[in-house]
């Protein structure tokens, strides 16, 4: 794989400009806080890139809330920290691009029924590693992750956390190899989201019954037999429907080894 290393690099380098603003009801100072602008990697997670922003706003909120858990919303929609940032943008702004992306920062009224708690970065790491393991179960019956050493797992996580492409891919390439005599994965790790954010996961083979490579179009026909003209977006791109699934999985998966695609 990875003959198309430039594609991997382009995806890795994808960034989003974000404008954070403190929710009006949180502001306890007479002086209004400036908005906080930052460029963040599309492949990352919000808790990994918001330390500085949090410090910026802390001095404007009530002291009693300074230890409470921060959360974000876009247009009143709480953002799930355990989804990659780029995917969240595609989900909520894919049809109507907005740059910079305007997000609101909260320290109170945590939406318990919508968001999972994230007390520190270890929680993000546990979620990330678990998702990589799930993907490996689908691709290789979990054999690659279980034969890796702890330091390899750490390197995957640190590569993502520190935005180090080479560090990450030195390990991730092993997760992208095909095993046995078969060319391709056993199944394609893929999560498909409707526009309300509902996630659907199906068992998808990279091959058709006759052994030929399955394309996105063929998968769409299988999963949505009643719908006409289904399109899928990821990394800000509407994916051409003749793209083979195996290639998509090797090149356009998020670091958690899943394809996260918005259906529209």
């Amino acid at each position: 794989m990875a003959n198309d290393r430039e594609v991997l690099r382009e995806i890795w380098d994808g960034k989003l400009p974000i404008c954070f603003q403190l929710a009006q009801e949180e502001i306890m100072e007479i002086q209004q806080p400036d908005a906080f602008y930052v460029m963040v990697p599309r492949l990352s997670y919000f808790p990994l890139v918001t330390d500085k922003m949090k410090r910026h706003f802390l001095r404007y909120i009530s002291q009693e809330n300074s230890d409470s858990e921060m959360w974000l919303d876009y247009n009143g929609q709480p953002l799930k920290w355990h989804y990659p940032i780029g995917f969240l943008y595609d989900l909520y702004c894919g049809n109507d691009p907005q740059l910079p992306w305007h997000l609101t920062v909260h320290f109170t009224k945590f939406p318990e029924d919508v968001l999972l708690h994230c007390t520190n970065k270890d929680v993000v790491e546990a979620h990330f590693m678990s998702t990589v393991k799930e993907a490996d179960v689908l691709k290789h019956r979990g054999q690659v992750m279980s034969t890796m050493q702890k330091k390899d797992h750490n390197q995957l996580w640190l590569g993502l956390q520190n935005d180090k492409f080479d560090q990450f891919w030195a390990i991730n390439r092993r997760l992208m190899e095909s095993h046995g005599d078969s060319e391709g994965f056993k199944h394609i790790p893929i999560k498909l989201y409707s526009d309300d954010g509902t996630c659907s996961q199906r068992l998808v083979s990279p091959k058709n019954n006759d052994g030929s490579r399955k394309t996105l179009q063929q998968m769409i026909a299988e999963l949505y037999p009643d719908k006409l003209d289904v399109q899928l977006r990821t990394h800000g791109i509407v994916i051409p429907t003749d793209t083979p699934l195996q290639w998509l999985s090797e090149h356009l998966s998020y670091p958690d080894n899943f394809l996260h695609m918005c259906v529209f």
Partner: peptide, 21 residues
């Protein structure tokens, strides 16, 4: 744990796990 391997996210739906595992 699913498959004695990974811990699914608390917001993952039962049907998605059943479908795949």
């Amino acid at each position: 744990y699913v498959n004695q391997t990974f811990a699914p996210s608390p917001d993952q739906l039962v049907k998605n796990l059943y479908e795949c595992f």
